[in-house]
Amino acid sequence: MATLPNPLPSLATSGLDLPPGTLVDTTLDGTWHEPLLWYADGPPADLRAWSRLRAAGRPLGLLPVLVTGGRRDQWPEEWDLCPDAASYPGDHDADEVLAGYWTEYAADEVAPEDTGPGTDGTGPDADGSEGPGPWPGLAPVPAREAAEDADTAAAGLAGVITADADEWLGGARTALVPARRSADIPAAIGWSGPMNHENDVARLCAVLRSWEDRYDARVVVLGFDTMIVSVGRPPGTIEEARALAAEHYAFCPDNIDQSPPYDLDAYAEKAVLNQEAWSFWWD
């Protein structure tokens, strides 16, 4: 992945006021030639830790993200990071990426009860047979205006999670990653959470970039195989939600295939419509 100079090796002399923490250079294939991220050794001291780190780190090329060990207590050293497998997110087109996933997964996995004409792209195929239908294309930008700045929304979600991280995630710690866009954070560290779905996480980051632009989305939490995204401008109508649900399915089929009620329309209503946080997990 093409990157700007990594500020993490000089973190100690950067002037940032950081708590005790760990630089991670451990990957699936051994030690990487430079640190991939820094994360604190303990939970955030207060609810404003995220905002302070973003303000101080961004001029240096560092962005905050919460990392979680999850219920299995797996922290970034145990995430099987694969930075050499990540390309550059800007080299991929979100619509093309999602169309490929939709073609590969939806025909076999979208349940029959999900089929039927609709803006989410499901319905009878051209030959009259039941199926998910062709890829419907990217969902439109929501008609509603954002209630607040996208980074403010991300900080708010980070604060909510920090306030009760054990309940949400089994523990969370603040991390800094060398990235210019929140959407690029997974590629910057070579995150392998979606490995069973996609080997090059930069392709998923291209989708996250598109969600940044259309929905004011920000990556707020990463775990071994989980991601939580803040949403500053969520879909405000069921039609908008159904259109986006098709993207979510292509991006992370396990959210629907392995999570009750296993129905794309129900997912659109419960997990997308007016939701200011999206959660994803890959089996």
Score class of each variant (00 low, 15 high):
D213W: 11
D17A: 15
G193Y: 00
A126Q: 07
P89K: 06
A158H: 06
G70F: 09
R71W: 15
E130K: 03
P9T: 12
V141R: 15
G21C: 10
L66R: 02
R209G: 10
A143S: 14
P43Q: 14
V65F: 07
G118C: 05
E109W: 15
R52C: 03
P89I: 10
A183Y: 08
D265T: 12
L16N: 08
P44D: 12
A243I: 10
E130S: 13
R242M: 14
D46C: 11
P20A: 14
R218F: 10
G123C: 06
P89Q: 11
L63K: 05
A85H: 01
P186W: 00
V221S: 03
R214N: 09
L8R: 07
A40R: 04
W32D: 05
L98N: 05
A12K: 13
P7K: 04
A56F: 09
R144L: 09
D283K: 02
A206S: 15
G15A: 11
W38H: 04
D93K: 06
G70E: 07
A245M: 12
A163N: 09
A246C: 07
D25H: 12
W282L: 03
D93G: 06
A268G: 06
A188I: 09
Y39N: 01
T115M: 14
Y88N: 13
A126L: 14
Y215N: 07
P132Y: 11
P194H: 03
D263N: 15
N196I: 00
C205M: 06
A187N: 02
L4F: 13
F224Q: 00
D200C: 08
Y262R: 04
R54T: 03
R48F: 13
D200H: 06
L81K: 01
A106E: 06
D46M: 11
F224A: 02
W282C: 02
C205L: 05
